[in-house]
Amino acid sequence: MRVLQFGDSLLPVGAFSFSNGLETAVEIGVVHDVETLRAFVRAAVEQAATSDGVAVLATHRAVSVGDITGVDRADRAVFDRKLNEEMRTMTVRMGRKLAEMAARVLGPSTPSDWLDRIKAGATPGCLPIGQALVFAALGLSERDAFAVHQYGLATMMINASLRLMKIHYLDAQAVLFEVDADAEEAYWRVAKLGLDDMAAFAPGFDVLASLHVRAHVRMFMN
Score class of each variant (00 low, 15 high):
Ala49Thr: 06
Phe205Pro: 01
Trp188Ala: 15
Met165Gln: 05
Leu153Phe: 02
Asp197Ile: 10
Ala202Trp: 13
Asp116Lys: 05
Thr50Ala: 08
Leu138Arg: 01
Leu138His: 06
Lys82Ser: 08
Ala58Thr: 07
Val3Pro: 01
Gln131Ala: 08
Met90Asp: 00
Arg218Gln: 10
Ile158Met: 14
Ala49Asp: 00
Gly7Pro: 09
Ala160Trp: 14
Glu185Phe: 14
Leu170His: 01
Asp67Gln: 05
Gly14Met: 08
Ala160Lys: 11
Asp180Ser: 11
Met198Thr: 08
Val65Cys: 13
Ser64Asn: 07
Glu184Asp: 13
Ser17Arg: 14
Ile129Gln: 04
Leu208Phe: 12
His60Gly: 11
Gly95His: 06
Pro108Val: 09
Ala122Arg: 09
Pro108Asn: 12
Asp182His: 15
Ala58His: 06
Thr110Asn: 04
Asp171His: 11
Ile129Val: 14
Ala77Asn: 02
Ala147Ser: 08
Asn159His: 11
Arg76Tyr: 03
Arg2Lys: 07
Val34Pro: 04
Glu86Asn: 10
Phe177Gln: 13
Ser210Glu: 15
Phe135Lys: 01
Arg214Ile: 08
His149Trp: 03
Phe201Ile: 15
Phe220Gln: 03
Met101His: 15
His60Glu: 07
Gln131His: 07
Ala58Ile: 08
Arg61Thr: 04
Lys119Pro: 03
Met219Glu: 00
Thr50Glu: 00
Leu164His: 09
Val13Glu: 01
Ala181Asn: 11
Gly194Pro: 08
Ala55Pro: 01
Ala74Cys: 12
Ala136Tyr: 09
Ser210Val: 15
Leu164Tyr: 05
Phe146Asn: 09
Asp75Val: 10
Ala120Tyr: 00
Val56Phe: 01
Leu98Met: 06
Asp33Met: 03
Phe40Glu: 01
Ser161Leu: 12
Asp8Gln: 04
Arg163Met: 05
Ala202Met: 12
Val13His: 07
Phe40Ser: 02
Asp67Pro: 05
Arg218Gly: 10
Phe135Arg: 00
Leu153Gln: 12
Ala43Ile: 03
Ala202His: 14
Gly107Ser: 05
Arg88Lys: 08
Tyr151Phe: 08
Ala62Gly: 04
His32Cys: 06
Ala122Asp: 14
